[in-house]
Design a protein around this nucleic acid. Structure first.
Lengths: 193, 193
DNA sequence: CGATGTATATTCACTAGGCGGTATACATAG
DNA sequence: CTATGTATACCGCCTAGTGAATATACATCG
């Protein structure tokens, strides 16, 4: 029994991820997830206590991959610190031009569940963004920038702003604008120290 | 009876606005809106063809008041251009600290309906943000800033980013960070010209 | 080896209520 | 008498979640 259980559970999470991200949380029924996973609903409820728990599992599964991707983009970029930060936005713009792109799953979930402030999924989303911010702060701090914390917050604002704006207008060029703004702020902060 | 008809319709929109903003679109049933408006569902469906139309009416009703508020905050602020822009964010932070604050209705709706790109409500939201961006561009342009359009886009990104981030973390101080970033970008653009 | 016990994993069939939307009828006003 | 507006009552479908039975895997015991 070492494998089959995890495979079923992971299959359910996979199906839930695709559906929740593509359609939204409340637009997707538990039945739909079960069917997409090739499993009966009762089996789904064997592995997850409730839909809420399934939502949480969906976001938890996206936490690390997302962070890894951002770091990869940053590390792979050439140029100074500002250019490396801007590279994140440029890569994101490329991703956002894919037809299946539907914004940031964490933000969309928090928008949809805004009436349930303590919901586990929202806590997971908040923690995810905090990790990203903390990583940026460390990067800035190591680069000798004075108020690294404040600059990291501003990057996060531009990043999440670009998620929201690009989703609304379906115009990925906003992400490049965000990248330019981010680079400007980094350069100002680097000079000012 | 020239007025009561409009009163009924507006009463429904009022009730819908409060509920949709507080709870989210898909979390609120047509029955709930009708009951909150003190009207039967059949009456509601006499005034609105569908729930989708009701959603659109909700956002349409928020378009002008929102824009007016932003302009008022800008106009009322003292100081240079950067300070006046920053004032928008400071005022927004105050609003966001109110317990009933739940982010930007336009963005939350677009996040929730991301799987229906052509939905009327999304078009209304996009138009609303475009109006705000156009107003900012004109302000910057009149101030003699070179790439006023690009700067306006960056302001929008910070604004919508702060909506998203503050909603997620329930920490309005991010709005003040966004204001600082906005002021920095305005000052850089004003010097660079 | 083979029977049995037990925990895990899965299925079918079901419930009670909510959903968006509607058929029909009635009231009131011009 | 017709147009406008409101109400009661309803429809068919979908919703999250469940009860009871069953299948599989594996360890223990005879």
């Amino acid at each position: 029994m070492a494998k089959p259980e995890r495979t079923t559970r992971e299959g359910i999470i996979d199906a839930a991820s695709k559906l929740f991200y593509a359609e939204g949380i409340r637009a997707v029924s538990v039945d739909a997830v079960a069917e997409a996973a090739g499993v009966t609903k009762r089996t789904l409820y064997y592995h997850f206590e409730s839909k809420d728990e399934l939502i949480a599992a969906y976001l938890e599964g996206r936490d690390q991959p997302n962070l890894t991707l951002f770091r990869k983009w940053f590390d792979a970029a050439d140029g100074d610190l500002a250019a490396k930060v801007e590279a994140i936005f440029v890569n994101l713009a490329r991703a956002a031009r894919h037809p299946k792109w539907k914004g940031c799953g964490f933000l969309r979930t928090s928008a949809e569940l805004a009436n349930m402030p303590g919901h586990p999924a929202i806590r997971i989303g908040a923690a995810h963004k905090k990790k990203f911010e903390a990583w940026l702060m460390q990067v800035f701090s190591e680069a000798g920038i004075d108020d690294a914390g404040e600059l990291a917050r501003q990057m996060l604002l531009l990043l999440d702003g670009s998620f929201a704006v690009v989703l609304l207008h379906r115009d990925a060029s906003y992400m490049e604008s965000a990248g330019k703004a981010a680079a400007t702020l980094v350069r100002v902060a680097a000079v000012a120290r």
